[in-house]
Write a protein that binds this DNA or RNA. Structure first.
Lengths: 310, 310
DNA sequence: CTGACTCATAAAGCCAGCTTATGTCCTCAT
DNA sequence: ATGAGGACATAAGCTGGCTTTATGAGTCAG
């Protein structure tokens, strides 16, 4: 609050860290299990903890959120109205955590992997984790290893026989590889709604974009290369950050215009936390491709994974 | 492990719970801060912990994931390649947690709220949290309270002066309210890829859908009403569950066909964890509307929120 | 009225993460 | 060259949260 010396009506927003206002993963999963099974005890058993632990954990969660989540009865437990809502929001967190886990598991360098994938950043960030989860439901035994790098690195791995299937996002396909286009991606210029660009009526010219310092991923990233090519020169960095999420956070906080894949900013655009700035004379579109050594179309688990990408 | 007596090659997938394989929110936020600030110490300061705590936490995370995440140097710390990937996956979790927090904060019944919103489930679940985050960046002082219910409940609150702005998803607008359409929503029939329906070539007839037991939200939900109306009778429940997420989980695990909002299943369809079954002679489309008492178009914070919805 | 199910409570133990207090290494400026 | 400052690592001690075990109490069916 901005009043000088009065007891703050809202007790200081970000004073308490997010991690203390949001229940931990275990608690959220427990809530989901209760919603699905209709009983604290059954949910506890599914998660491998005891019933009192589940009971106290749900109670702690209700205290933390200040909302009753489940209606307990001697015949079981059902979600309250607010509980159903909270459970669905919780589901989004758990889904993101499952994607994280699937990705992290593949990152661990496992020599016994049945399927070795090499992928560029955009694909590894936004598409691959979901595929890995799907693949696991189809073929639970398939251990997948993931290596992320630019197009050249992906091609080198494939040609050296160190990867079975690759995904690239470049404008061209490296020599010696067969490919199939699986999706398209577009880079977008975004600012916070407060930025001057957000209110200008006219589309932005490439020259103007090239002349303005931007929030960007570090040199060498795929995004950066596409941008440099399209602008016919090097984009000027205002800040260089080492992850897409960090770039987004800076843009949302109003630090300046950023250039990102549209896959990265869907939510933010929908909620108007970021605004897309239309461009006049550039198209920052690129194909996302699956690739493999010429003539060696993947079989086995690689074929299955390819099938998930269309 | 289902093999009788042989050492499991993969050390039992879900043996260790998800919560122990994914770092907690605090650790993930710390990683994001390191990515943004370029130093463990600065990141620690931002989160209000000491430098050794940050150091040990990142180290613990690297041990847990089995991957090096940051390159430490006497001049600061930068993410490794794998670290950038992990950081972005972490960002998705943190975003979901922020949405959860924004929603949960609004659910807490606060009488001093400057803006009282009443919304139907689909909107409260998928759209509102993002808007609340955006609203908070625009107007940090605005305390919002949320009440979720069906169209009739929303209308009642508005007409009783107990809510300032409503959102409904019905086919009709309750009497006494002005409205504006903010989006559209479509119910889709989905199954796991293994289900027989996933392989049939032809679209499904409404009669066939009506004759098949389905995984559904409980009676009284908006989804359920739309479905019953479209089928010209009551849909048969195979299982009734009290949250959308629980319905999704059941469908993914192959328990049967489910009917859900397309907003709920975007990720699952993209990764082919669920397959949409086309319908022949029904359209399960409905408008999402903002509503307010006739003649009393919201002003102040309500107007701002309305602006976020287009 | 007994057995099977639910959830709640109480007491005791363990583990994770924090802080404080150092130490080491590098870099830059004087 | 040398000292200051920043950045990360290590060690020791404390605290708090979550668990388990062991109960109690309410509801329903046979």
């Amino acid at each position: 609050m901005s009043q000088p010396s009065s007891p703050a009506p809202t007790p200081a927003p970000a004073e308490v860290p997010l991690a203390h206002r949001v229940p931990d993963l275990g608690a959220l999963q427990l809530l989901l299990a209760v919603a699905r099974l209709g009983s604290l005890g059954r949910a506890a058993r599914e998660l491998g903890i005891t019933q009192p632990a589940a009971s106290s954990r749900v109670r702690a969660m209700e205290r933390q959120l200040g909302v009753a989540l489940v209606d307990r009865s001697p015949r079981g437990s059902r979600l309250t109205g607010a509980g159903a809502l909270v459970t669905d929001w919780a589901g989004r967190i758990v889904e993101a955590a499952e994607a994280f886990d699937a990705g992290a598991q593949a990152l661990r360098d496992r020599r016994d992997s049945r399927l070795r994938v090499a992928a560029s950043m955009t694909i590894a960030e936004y598409l691959l984790p979901g595929w890995l989860i799907a693949l696991r439901t189809q073929r639970p035994d398939t251990a997948v290893s993931l290596l992320a790098g630019n197009s050249a690195a992906v091609a080198a791995r494939l040609l050296a026989g160190e990867a079975d299937l690759g995904f690239v996002e470049g404008l061209t396909v490296p020599a010696g590889l067969d490919d199939v286009v699986i999706a398209h991606d577009r880079l977008v210029v975004v600012t916070s709604p407060g930025h001057p660009w957000a209110r200008r009526g006219k589309p932005l010219a490439a020259a103007e974009l090239a002349a303005t310092p931007l929030i960007l991923r570090e040199e060498g990233s795929g995004t950066r290369q596409v941008l440099d090519t399209a602008l016919g020169g090097l984009a000027r960095p205002l800040i260089e950050l080492s992850s897409t999420t960090a770039v987004k956070a800076s843009a949302v906080s109003g630090a300046g215009p950023a250039v990102l894949s549209e896959l990265a900013v869907g939510e933010e655009l929908a909620a108007r936390r970021l605004v897309e700035i239309p461009l006049k004379d550039v198209r920052l579109r690129r194909a996302l491709r699956a690739v493999w050594p010429t003539g060696h179309r993947p079989s086995g688990p690689g074929r299955d994974l390819l099938g998930l990408t269309r």
